[in-house]
Amino acid sequence: MNLGNLDLNLLVSLDALLRERSVTRAASRMNLSQPALSAALGKLRKHFADELLVRSGNSYLLTPLASQLLERCALALSDVERVFAATAHFDPAECEREFTILTSDYGLSILGPDFAAAMARHAPRVQIRFEQHSPDIIDHAFERLRVTDTIWLPHGFLSDLPHMDLYTDRWVCVAATNNPAITEELTVENLRTLPWVVNYQTPTAYTPATRQMELLGITPQIQVITDSFITIAAMISGTDRIALVQERLARRISPELGVIIWPVPFDVVPLVEAAWWHPLSDRDVEHRFMRDVLASVAESVSTDPHTT
Rank of each mutant, 00 (worst) to 15 (best):
N178I: 14
V197A: 00
G4D: 09
A36Y: 07
H163M: 11
V80M: 15
R211W: 07
W152F: 15
L3N: 09
N199D: 02
T24I: 11
A88N: 14
T239I: 10
R29K: 08
L294S: 09
A36T: 12
E256A: 12
E189T: 08
P203Q: 07
E71G: 07
F289A: 04
N31K: 08
V268F: 01
I253C: 06
L244S: 04
G156D: 04
L194A: 04
P208S: 05
T207R: 06
G156M: 04
V126E: 11
E299A: 12
T303K: 06
I260F: 06
A49L: 13
E143M: 10
A234Q: 12
I137C: 11
V197R: 00
Y206S: 12
F84M: 15
V272A: 07
A275C: 05
P208A: 04
P154R: 04
Q34W: 10
P154W: 04
Y60T: 00
R29F: 05
D284H: 06
T100S: 03
P263R: 08
Y106D: 01
V224A: 02
G4P: 03
T150Y: 03
D91Y: 09
V259Q: 01
A243N: 02
L69Y: 01
V285M: 13
E286L: 10
I242V: 15
T24E: 12
T87E: 15
R241P: 00
L215A: 14
G42C: 06
L6C: 07
V259P: 00
L191M: 06
I260C: 09
L102T: 05
A295V: 03
P154D: 05
Q212S: 04
R29G: 03
N5D: 09
A27E: 02
N5W: 09
D165C: 01
H140C: 11
E94M: 12
N31V: 07
L249N: 05
A86N: 14
A86C: 12
A233F: 02
R252N: 08
A36L: 07
L161S: 03
V174P: 02
H278P: 11
E98S: 13
L186S: 02
D169S: 05
A209Q: 02
I261R: 08
E247R: 14
R19V: 02
L69P: 02
E51P: 00
N9V: 06
E256M: 08
A295S: 14
R248Q: 10
A86W: 15
